[in-house]
Every structure is written in structure tokens, then in C-alpha cells.
Simulated assay, not measured.
Amino acid sequence: MNVTDLQTELILYAKSIGVDKIGFTTASPFIELKNRLRRQQELGYQSGFEEPDIEKRTEPLQLLEQAESIIAIALAYPSKMKDAPLGKKGERRGIFCRASWGVDYHVAVRERLQLIEAWLRERVPDVKIKSMVDTGELSDRAVAERAGVGWSAKNCSIITPEFGSYVYLGELITNVPFAPDQPMEDECGECRLCIDVCPTGAIVEGGQLNAQRCIAFLTQTKGFLPDEFRGKIGNRLYGCDTCQTVCPKNKGKANWIHEEFTPDPELAKPLLEPLLTISNKEFKAKFGHVSGSWRGKKPIQRNAILALAHFKEQQAVPELLEVMKKDERPVIRGTAAWALGKIGGQGVREALLAAKEREQDMEVLVEIDKGLALLTEIE
């Protein structure tokens, strides 16, 4: 079979296994990306979660000898939730970002890539392949952009005309010389809504993100959240969708396509208080299949405490007092102390002062003092 026919058949096969978009590009180096990544590194804008070796991120031949082309795929995920529960006084809820609704996308995208891999191996005896999704060396967005899947938007997402930016991306490097697709024209135009409404000013300019200020990144950190961001994360437990939800190109893109990505409303918008005392076993059983669980329960619990403070949820005070008193983890104890100062209420000052007497951890003591100072402002 010649390469043109193989490519045509592969596109049809990809659609049949639930791939919403497929594109092809060469395996030549990503020169512009290399320069951009070096600049990001110099400015200290990286998250630390990405592959540190810029050469590996931008030179496909370093990842696969004889690489000729890269296949990029995209799967659309929902932007809207049916029957979303409403939080109310006494029953406050947090929210996971849309990319963490339904089954973990790493699993879903990897399954499709493995099927494509098997399909190619059947038809090309000496085929060489390396596939990856999100945690691989290559930049998913740079590959998708060059393969014509969508354009690279000001909010640092890939926007597709059909599904907006609500797409999961993956790619497969191969030694098969597929014909490359044309990159898409940038359609952001003069719009800068995503830059203007970013809660922390993380989008420095169109296409440039300071990951250290991005709420999506901050919700995944395990230490104390810096003070300046505590009032900004609202009730977000994992991730942030603001720069997507305000985007005009996402208007009307519900994307109820794949059953596996349909959110369970009670998991996507869970009650906050039960999260404070959830065990590791319970957390894994309940949230283990969603991508937002990858850092474990600690960041989620810390964010749940901050969300209760955001709501000034008086009913959570007894639970927070218990957490401050008994939790073994300094970050959780300290965040609870800060939250109690933010919420206030009967007996809180006495409890904070008592905690100050018994606490041994210096960082927690700092948070207790912050809580007492906040309490003074309320009173």
C-alpha cells in the first residue's frame, strides 16, 4: 500500500475509534518553540512539571531515530455539565476543571494512540513508532498547531473550529513519511479577553504564560499556597477554566460526544466538607479515575479549606477546628488555621490561641498568627 492510501485509510480508522481530529506534520525541529522555551526558562515561567530538556522537547529525531512525521490527534471533551448541583449555605461545593471531568484523559488518549499504533504495525512491517500524551517530551500544542489540528491561541490553548479549545491532545512520531497538513490561520484577532480576565495575570501576553502564577498550576502544588493567591482560587479544587470559558470561540461548544468524559456531577462539583477528612482509600476509590487525582488528596484538601474560607462557611468551623487540631500534615493544619481566621465565629480566637500554645511547626505558627490577624480585622 502506498503512503497516500495508507494516510487516507488511517484518517478513516482514527474517526472510527473516536478520534475527533487528526493531523500530520513533519518530524523537523520546532525552532520557534525552542526559542520560546528558552525564554520561558530564563524568565522562570515554567511549572516544573514539564520535560526539562529543551532539545528533547523540540527535536523529534532525538526521540525516534529515522523519524519522518508526527501524527497529532484530538479528542473533544464537554464544556457543560447536565444536572450540575448547586452549592448553598451549609452545603458548599468545589469544582474540578472541565479537563478533569469523566475518565482520566491520559488513559483515553493513550488507548486511541495504542490502537493507531497496532493498526500501523499490521500494515507497515518495519514501522517505528513513539507515542505520547501530555507527560511526553514533545509539546502537544506545538505538534497540534503545526499539524493543522487548531491554532495556538492567546490563552495558550489549541483552538479547533469544531470543538473550541475543549480538546485533549496526543501525538505519535513515526518513520512513515506522511504528507504534512497545513497549519491553521490564527483566528484570535484583536480579542484579548483571556488576558484581561485571568484572575492572577498569569497570561503575560498572547501565547505567553507564567505558569508560576497560573491557578491551574497552583491548585496542583502541595505546599502552602502563597498569600496573594488564596483569595483568587475561589472554590476551584483542581485546575482553572476562566481563560476558556470567556473565549468567544468556545461559545456554544458543549461537546457531549464521548460517554467516558461525561462528568458525574457529584465528583465534578463535590461537597467540600467531606473532603477534609476523606481517607486515602476513600479518595482513591472515589476520585482515582479522574485526572485531577494525580497529585493525591493533599492539594485537593488544602484547596477545599481555602474554598470554605472563600465562602466564609460558618458551618464548617467545627470541622476546621478538628483539622487544625488533629491533622498530621503541617500544610493542612496551617491552612485550616488561616481559614478559621478568615471565617471567624464563636470560639475561634480561643482555639487559635490554644493551637499556638501546642504547635511545634514554625510554618504552622506563622499561619496561626495570620489567622489571628484576620480575626482582628473581622472583629
Rank of each mutant, 00 (worst) to 15 (best):
E32T: 11
T262V: 13
T221Q: 10
R98D: 00
L61S: 12
M362T: 14
V204C: 05
F30G: 05
E171V: 09
P265G: 07
V19M: 02
D227T: 12
T277N: 08
Q315V: 11
E266R: 05
M132A: 15
E228I: 15
L169K: 12
L172R: 09
L43I: 06
D264V: 05
P60F: 00
I31P: 00
Q212G: 08
K80M: 07
M324F: 14
S100I: 11
A211L: 09
D5V: 06
G48I: 08
A99G: 13
F30H: 02
W151F: 10
L306S: 08
G94R: 08
S165M: 08
R57V: 03
T376Y: 04
L10C: 02
L138S: 10
E68S: 15
A309Y: 02
E9I: 02
H258P: 07
A14N: 05
D5G: 05
K56A: 14
C243S: 06
A354F: 05
C156T: 15
K222A: 03
D227E: 14
F311Q: 01
V3G: 02
R146E: 09
N235V: 07
H310R: 09
E117W: 06
D20E: 03
E162R: 13
Q40I: 04
M132I: 00
K34R: 15
G371M: 04
H289A: 15
N210Q: 12
P248F: 01
I257N: 01
E91I: 12
F217S: 03
E185A: 12
R36K: 07
E50P: 06
L218D: 11
Y105R: 05
L63H: 10
V149H: 02
K89G: 13
G136L: 01
G334R: 01
I158H: 08
G292N: 07
I195N: 00
L276N: 04
K130Q: 08
S131V: 03
W101M: 07
E32G: 06
C191K: 00
A14F: 04
R358F: 15
I195R: 00
K281F: 13
S100R: 01
P78H: 13
P270K: 06
C243V: 10
L12G: 01
L75K: 08
G341R: 04
R39T: 04
T262I: 08
K251V: 12
P330S: 15
E350W: 05
L172A: 11
A254T: 13
K312W: 09
E322N: 15
I368S: 03
F229G: 08
W151L: 00
E359N: 12
A84S: 14
D83K: 15
T262G: 05
N175D: 13
V317N: 06
E228M: 09
A307D: 02
G201P: 12
A144E: 00
V176I: 15
R112K: 15
N210C: 14
Y105E: 09
N35M: 10
F24Y: 14
D264N: 11
L352G: 03
A337R: 06
Y168I: 10
L169T: 12
E9D: 09
V366N: 00
P274I: 14
L193I: 01
L306F: 03
F261L: 07
T25P: 03
K251I: 15
A14K: 07
D196H: 07
